[in-house]
Amino acid sequence: MSQILINNVQKVFTTPGGPVVAMKDIQLTIQPGEFVCLLGPSGCGKSTLLNAVAGFQPPSAGEITIEGKKILSPGPDRGMVFQEYALFPWMTVAQNIAFGLEVQKKSRSDIAQTVNQLLDLLHLKDFRDRYPKDLSGGMRQRVAIARVLALDSPIMLMDEPFGALDALTRRNLQDELLRIWEKLGKTILFVTHSIEESIYLADRIVVMTYRPGTVKRDQIVDMPRPRDPSSAAFNALKRELGALVMEEQQRHANAEMKLAAVD
């Protein structure tokens, strides 16, 4: 099974102002089928970590393995959903979903069947021949999810996928994602800066510190789903994690003030 092992990973970016340590000493094991949220303020390295797992930016030190194999490049075994959707605007909804399968040289009938199943699963049937420009943000993100599901990869990486959506659409897609996750048993690594979103979705929340990004808290969320955001347990955890995130947010703000003062 696809266990993700993040072993003592570090990432240093060289910038004109000198090297910046984006993350260090990250040690995480993600079990197959687990839904893990990476939570933290911007600049905490959560997207850096996700990009390293995706294979876009290899870590400066340490290694990431999946099923014991070291990650060296991006690949369809780790489908990524981006905040900016990243749909190909020149392809229709159905073509976008089919693209990954065409790349894998699947047969026409297999592709057609998978595409139809996914259009069904994500309630996109009526939109199959539309172009992305004609879809709302929520619809586009459904297509992006379908495109990744088409790969049938065991792992889904999601980089603030619902960050640009309004609250209602967001909740709706969170529920859809949970439904799909429960049905298909994917391993999900989900980056967010919303505390509520992480508690609503995750089995486990990894709170990260502001630069350099380290693991501040590795929190199991032991609540049955569907979770009620107005329940006492939900809110207790939200307060607790909120305090942790706020500390880091404060460090972030102070660092920016210092920079501004230097300018």
Binding site: M80, E84, A86, V103
Partner: peptide, 27 residues
């Protein structure tokens, strides 16, 4: 760059990247 990243994530090779992503994106 986001299209290139998405395409590489879907596992395309260099030729497909060029004909199916870069070329239409540049039209």
């Amino acid at each position: 760059g986001i299209y290139l990243r998405a395409a590489r994530n879907l596992g395309v090779n260099q030729l497909t990247l060029f004909t199916r992503v870069i070329l239409p994106a540049a039209t």
